[in-house]
Each structure stands twice: as C-alpha cells, then as structure tokens.
Nucleic acid binder design. Structure first.
Lengths: 222, 222, 222, 222
DNA sequence: AATGAATGAGGATTCATTCAT
DNA sequence: AATGAATGAATCCTCATTCAT
C-alpha cells in the first residue's frame, strides 16, 4: 500500500506517468491556484484518466504538495549560491542577487504557486501550504547563512531582520514582475535590492558597533 | 411545473443589502481567493439567498471586482500621505512608511485578495484582477508623486525605478506578514525599507549628480 | 383586479407597454419555443422590468397565449381568402394558394411557434397550445368552406379529408421552408400543392360520382 | 471540506448505461423538446445520477444529438423501401407510402423532436438540430432515389421538386397526427399523398414531354 | 500499474413569481 | 400603471473521490 514518494529504483514506467501528472499539475496550479486546479483539468492535460492520478497521489492535497516540492527542488538546483569567497562583500552580495534574479526569471512556478497558497487563509490548511512554508524556511536559512558569512560581526537579531528583509524584498520584486510582465527588469531591481540590503547591514553594523550598546532597532523583526 | 410562492421576510432596501453582500464577500474572498469564494458561502454569511446576490451583481466576477474596489477605497481613505512638508526628507519618508505600514496591518483585505488574483495567470482574466491592477496603478502614481516631491532633482527614470522598488518592497513585506503572522513587526520592517529607499534615492542622486550625462543606472527598471 | 385583455378604450399608455412586451415575446418565443422563452429575456428585450410583465399578464402561460393570439390575428388579417367567385375552380384554388403562401412568407411567427407548441406533449398542456389549436380549428373551418364552395358535390367526409390534406400539406411546406431557409420557393410549392388538392378533389368526385355507391376511401381521414 | 464516500450499487457496464440514458432521454425529449428536457428528469427516469450522464455524454447538447441519431437509425431500420420492382409505378409508390406511414406511427420520436428543433431559430444552433438536418438530408436522398427510379424520364429539377414535396407533405401529415392524435388515419392520408405525388410526377412528365426544351416548371423549388 | 464507470455534494447561475411601494 | 428587490426551486454542469476490474 505504500506509494512511491521517491522514485522506485528501476522497476520504472510508473515513474514516467508520475512525471507527466506533475508536469500537467504544475502548469495548471501555477495558472489557477489551489482551488482552481481540478483533477479533471490535470487529467485532461496529461492524458491520463483521473483515477490514475489517484493511483499516484493520495488526494489533491498530496498532488499539490508534490508539485510544490518538485518545483522547489528544480528551482533550488538552478540557484547555486556561490561558495567561492573571492571579492568584496558587496561584490559577493551582488553576484548572489544576480543569480537569484536569473533563477526566478527561469523557473518561477514554485514561487508563484507557493505565494498564492501562502496568501490564502483557509480554515484547514492545505498540505501544499505547509510544504511551501517548509521550503521557504530552508531558503530563509540559506540566505541567513550567506548574510552571516558576509557580515560576521552582525548579531543574530540583525541577521534575522536582514534575512527577512532580503527575502521579503525578493518576493515583492518577483510578484511585481508576475504582475507587470516581462518588461520588468528583474536583475536590475535585484541589484538595487542587493545594495539596499548591503547598506542596511552596514547601517546596523554601525549602530551596533559603536560604543552605544543599545541600538534602537536591535530586536529582530520577526 | 408551477413554482410555489412564499412571502419575503424583509422590506426591500437595496443599498444596505449590497453592503451586506460585500461585507460577507470581502471576508471570504480575503481568506480563500477567487475560486475559493463560493456564492453559497457568501449567501450563508450575509443571510441573503444566492439569487439575491445576483440581483445586485451580474456574476461572481462582478462581485469580486466590487469587493476589491470597495476594499481599496476603504484602504485609500485610511492611508493619508502627509501633506505637511515639515521635517527633513528622511523624516518625511519615515512618517509616510509608518502610515502605510499601519494601514496595511488594519485593512489588508484588498491587498491580500488583489495579490492572489495578480499572481494567477488564468487564460480569461477575472475582472477583479483588472480592477486590482487599476487601483495598483493609482497607488504607484501616488507613491511616485511623493518620491518626486521629496527628491526633486531625480530624473523621471530614477523616480520610476524607486517607485517600483518602494511598492514592490511593501508588497513583499506585506506578504511576509501574511505568511508568518502577527509576530512580524511590520512597522519596523517598513522603517527599514523606508531607509533603504531613501538611501537608494541618495545613491541615484549621487550617481546622476557627478558626471551628469552618463549615470550608470539611468534606464528605468520597468 | 381585472387585467385589460382587450385594450382599455383610451386611458391609454399601458397599451403601449403591453405591445412592447408582446413584440419582444413573439420574437423570443419564435426563436426558442415555450420553455426557451424566459421572462427575463422578454424583459431584457422590451426594456420593461420583469415585474411589469406580470402586471400585464397573469403568468408566462398567459403571455405566450396572448402572443399566439395576436400573431394569429395579424396573420389572419394578411390572408384574405378571395370572395370574388370569378374564374374556374382551379384558378380560384391557385389564387388562394398563392395568397396563403405569401402570407406565410411574411408573417410566419404564429405558425412556427404554434407548431412548436403543438408538437410538444407535456403533461400539463400550456394555454398557448390550446389557443393555437383553437385558431387552427378556425383555419381548418375556413379552408373547409372554400373547398366546399369550390366542389359543392363533394360529401362531407371527402371535404374533411381534403381539408386535412390541404392544411397538413401547407404545414409541411412551411416547415420545410423554416428548415431550409429562404431558398425554398414557397409559392411554387404551394402551387404544386394546390394542383394536388384540386386533382384529389376531382378524383374523389369521380369515385363518388359514378354509379358505384361505395367508393374505397369514402371515410374521412380524421 | 472532504467529501464522503459511498459504495456504488452496480458494477460498471458502460454500454448498457448509455442505452438506459438514451432510452430515458428519447422519451422525455420527444415529449418536451430541447429546453424541456432537463438532465434531472432524465436522471430520474433512467435511475443513474446526473453526474453519470455526464460521463457518457459531454453535455446536454451532445445527449440530445445522440438521441436524435439513435432514434433516426431505429426508424431507418424500420422503413424498408421495397427493393422488389414488381408492379406498376403507382402500386410501388403506394406500397412505399404505406410503409413509411406505418413506420411513422410506430417510431415517431426522432421526427417529432427533430421537427421541434428544426423549427427553432436560436442564435447558437443546438447540435441536435444539425444532426437532424443531416439525417433529414439522408432521407431526402433516399426518397429522391425512389422517385428517380420510378420516373426515369424526369429531369433532375423535377425530381428535386417532387422529393421536396413528398417529404414536406409527409412532415405535414405527421405533424397533423401529432396534433390531433391517434384518430388521424395516417395510412389513408399517406395514400392520398402518394397519389398526389404520383399525379404530380405524371403532370411534370407531361409538361416536359411535350415541347421538350421549355417546360413551364423546370426550375426546382428548393 | 492502471482505468472505465460511477457517485453524491456542491459549483455558478437562471427560473417564474411575489410584494411593498 | 408600474417597479426595485427579493426568493426558493430548479437549471446545467463540475467536483473530488471510489472501486471493481
């Protein structure tokens, strides 16, 4: 009765169907959100009957969650936060931002769908939302690491605030591009944002670094 | 095949009914998005039968659009961009940001629903999405004015870029709070964002001010 | 509480509304039949609110019946069976047929709608169907008279059969034209039909007129 | 928001279910026409839930079209235009007419429904109407063949006119019987009609036969 | 590893009609 | 003489899901 959540070695073939379903689902869910994604529509798009979808996934919730999971993984593979520690902090921030900007232009499905789910507030939270929050936590963690490594003298609270600000800004810029279309120059806006985060870090460092032990905004913002 | 007839309960009062419907709809649509908002649910919440909703609104699309319109107007009344030109530009930026932050904590329905709709990409665009984009344009216009008045020396391209960045950042921070709940300190993050925008403006001014004819980032980002 | 079924002398104005409603209703009912004619559609077409329609007509049944009645009257005014008894019987048959053909080309609403209603077999017969059957009986009567006057020697049974055949043929040709469009040359077909009826009359006369007192088809067909 | 699950009563048998649905639909549609045929009524009559009807048919339009198609096929199987070429032309015309008359008494559903649909003029033509027009064209073709084989000397125009007249007359007589009930002696009327068509053929033959090149009614009527 | 057929609940929307004004 | 507002029942159709095969 266990369903192959991870691909079953090489007995194969069911795997392809599963991929076909996910391919169809990611497209529809990215277009229409959770409620708008009907099993019938996915079935029509992937060519497999609805009952086959239920062979591969427990229910709609499970399907959407898998969509987000896979889409996030694909995105995470795209983004490769640079490990090489050459260049000034600002240079490294800018390179990282450019990298993220490019990845969001290429594979935005998971984020679009994830944000849609995240903005909803339905009484019984869909599994997909939980998954998105988890992978988002992963992203926040990585961004936090980058910031921490770039500004080792920052306190944890400041790192938290900056991380939140960096990620939220990225969300906002991504959303803006989704709204206004390809004309939006995402890389340029990300560079602007990267500079802002960098400046903010410097500001916080200055505030905390001086002799004043109690800077105004030392408490983390989330 | 004749239908039975029953006496109506209340005496007709169109305006009030319309408001009741909108009140119910804004609540549900803010929670569950476009598809998740069923006429039956709105009917149950406002007490009027579904058919009465169709007396006041052409269809679900029309209803959602009206929800966004009214909710935006309510929000726009809440935000009062300060006309008093006292204080330094930074002070004024901070005050404005605080004002917006507060308004978004209080009346976020239109923005949450609007962003949900904006992120969707369904083939036949819902009317509500169009309305949201319109009111968003209004917001962008006002923010642009504020920026222009604060930094009169900025070129139009820079104003455009800054406006985009300011609004997108606000969207991102708002979204972040919707995701992570009331624990997120929206006013503090908005203050941080305000400083970023201010610094970015200064930076752009510096770049443009030095060797006037060839600023690095003169092209607007959208 | 009595509704003005016949136009109320000259207190006037309500009369015009009534006509507007009937104009709209005849158009829609002619297009879509009984069930397909919704009060809302009539209301939209005539510009008066649905409730006003109920001021003028008791219910939908009543409205449709009035439509048929008025439409029949308009048609009956169009057809003027020639009273002048000049010409041979065949000539007179042909003239009559030409007249009817022309009238059916010009004002076919009542017949189209009537036939639609007549073909239905719903358990509770609509008033409109009854009205149509009544006016149809009137038509049959007149045709019978014409036939009787043209062939005074025919027995009543033969007159009945011929009448039925003449009218049914007209229905069929009319229907054919409704199906196949304006390309159908209704006058020519009516002339053909008229000749057929004339020949049939002659045939029946011959059969009955000989010394054989028991012609094969003396019983009327309906 | 999860739906409850109940066990299905019978084991799946697609073909039989499809027939059951069509059986129910033909009965209702024959009685009440297109608009009067509600899916709920069909569901009630065939015992399958409405949603199951939508498994077998795309929508109501598709169902009605299938009803017409099947009903026509059943009727076409009933009518067997006699292949044996014994007897005089008149005898053969009479036999054919008798055959058709009998078939129309027995299986009139497709024709009644078809005529109802054909008389309608709704802006978006129902699929069923199209199907009816197609099968009607088939019938017209066959009748045309019979006429052509019986009167080989007739020109094509005359064949066309006679075919139209024969079929339209049949429609009219059928309609008459639908209106006035079983008392109408359809076979007798069809015999009368058959004689008329025969006489008309003879007349056309005579006209054309005299001064070959210029027959009075050489243009076909449709 | 799949799928054809089915199903009850619920989706948006329209229906004919009423009644207070 | 008319109408704005309302209403319960019905409309067509889609939903997520199940289960025997």
């Amino acid at each position: 009765m266990t369903r192959p959540r991870t691909a079953p070695k090489k007995r194969a073939n069911g795997v392809e169907s599963r991929q076909r379903i996910l391919d169809a689902a990611v497209e529809i869910a990215g277009e229409r959100g959770y409620e708008g994604t009907s099993i019938a529509a996915v079935s029509a798009k992937c060519g497999l009957p609805a009952s086959s979808i239920y062979w591969h996934f427990q229910d709609k919730d499970d399907l959407i969650a898998a969509v987000i999971e896979r889409s996030f993984e694909a995105w995470a593979d795209t983004v490769e936060l640079p490990d090489d520690i050459t260049g000034t902090p600002l240079e490294r921030v800018l390179i990282t931002a450019a990298d993220v900007a490019k990845s969001l232009v290429d594979a935005p499905d998971f984020l679009r769908l994830g944000l849609m789910l995240a903005l909803e507030r339905r009484p019984t939270e869909p599994l997909g939302r939980t998954v998105f929050l988890q992978v988002r936590e992963v992203s926040l963690g990585r961004v936090g690491e980058v910031i921490r490594s770039l500004f080792p003298d920052l306190g944890e609270d400041a790192v938290g605030t900056l991380t939140t600000y960096a990620v939220a800004g990225a969300d906002g810029l991504f959303t803006h591009r989704e709204i206004h279309g390809d004309a939006v120059d995402l890389p340029a806006l990300f560079e602007l944002h990267a500079r802002s985060v960098f400046d903010a870090a410097a500001r916080l460092l200055r505030e905390a670094g001086g002799s004043r032990p109690a800077p105004t905004h030392s408490a983390p913002c989330r």
